[in-house]
Design a protein around this nucleic acid. Structure first.
Lengths: 163, 163
DNA sequence: CGAACGGTTAGCATCACACGAACTAACGTC
DNA sequence: GACGTTAGTTCGTGTGATGCTAACCGTTCG
């Protein structure tokens, strides 16, 4: 049983990998049209998981000084992708937030294969779609259980939608 | 029927989006540790779909001159991420190839949520895994049909494994 | 009040990219 | 073979982003 299960897991992961390969490198990806540097992208990614993070903490994640980070954030703010606010309890602290435009551009970059994938979904018969829905629902349940075990934050919309 | 199907498609896509959100912004992503600029990353992405592409075509995709591209490729070659070869029929033409190291780093960047995803798969019961396998197989079939219709190249390992 | 802290600014250096110009090798046509 | 065109590389120049240290200012805390 375990051997069969391992083979099954492997088959699933291999198939997934292949699909991902097909989608991941879509050259219509937003990354080709957006004007972001790597450090800017890294900050945006960090803000997705830690919106409102203080600058000091960002410097630790990025491994740069406050002076450098200040410049990076300046330029993100100038692009409209991030905003700065003062901490409520300590006015020295600047909290850096992802702006709606920043979130949007990041979503577009990360959703690189979405359009192609939607084309594929439209080709599936209803039975397969229902199966996929079941699987995804169980995966989301597993994700929530996993997150609980890891003590990891779950995005609000994920959590509120479970009920 | 169509209304039901549309609702089903929407549910599937929404669930997928949620899962993707969970995985996409993992800050252990290789992107935080690799020393690549955006233009270099773009070239690597392009090479994944068009390995051995002539320089001239790369300039069109990137929207830069040959002089600029030459520098970018120089640095990718220096990093060990790409190689240059001469075209077999026209010795003026340089074909740019993704190196194994280049492919590896790109795979690591794109597979940002892979470890977390494997943890989730291990939580699924066999029935769900079998359903997932069926779905993925059908998705791959759809992908191949889609690619044929679009006249798009399929990576060799995808094609050879269908038989 | 003074020391410590968080963030910003200025100055400087480096790197990558971007372009046009110049150059060389290669190709195709006459 | 001569010639015009093409593909790519190199060079020089300029720009922007990043990276650091030092100085500065406002804020916090003992």
């Amino acid at each position: 049983m375990t051997i069969h299960r391992n083979a099954l897991l492997l088959r699933v992961m291999t198939a997934e990998q292949r699909l991902r390969t097909l989608f991941a490198y879509d050259r219509t990806n937003r990354i080709f049209s957006v004007n972001l540097t790597m450090q800017q992208l890294k900050v945006l990614i960090l803000l997705t998981r830690h919106d409102g993070i203080p600058s000091q903490e960002l410097t630790r994640h990025l491994g740069v000084t406050l002076a450098t980070l200040s410049g990076i954030v300046d330029r993100l703010v100038a692009h409209g992708y991030a905003t700065r606010t003062e901490d409520l309890h300590d006015r020295r602290i600047r909290r850096i937030h992802l702006s709606p435009a920043g979130r949007e551009v990041l979503t577009e970059i990360m959703d690189s294969g979405n359009r192609a994938q939607q084309r594929l979904l439209a080709r599936l018969d209803d039975e397969t779609l229902l199966m996929l829905e079941t699987v995804l629902t169980r995966l989301l349940d597993a994700a929530r259980a996993d997150a609980l075990e890891q003590g990891v934050d779950i995005p609000d919309d994920l959590e509120s939608h479970s009920h």
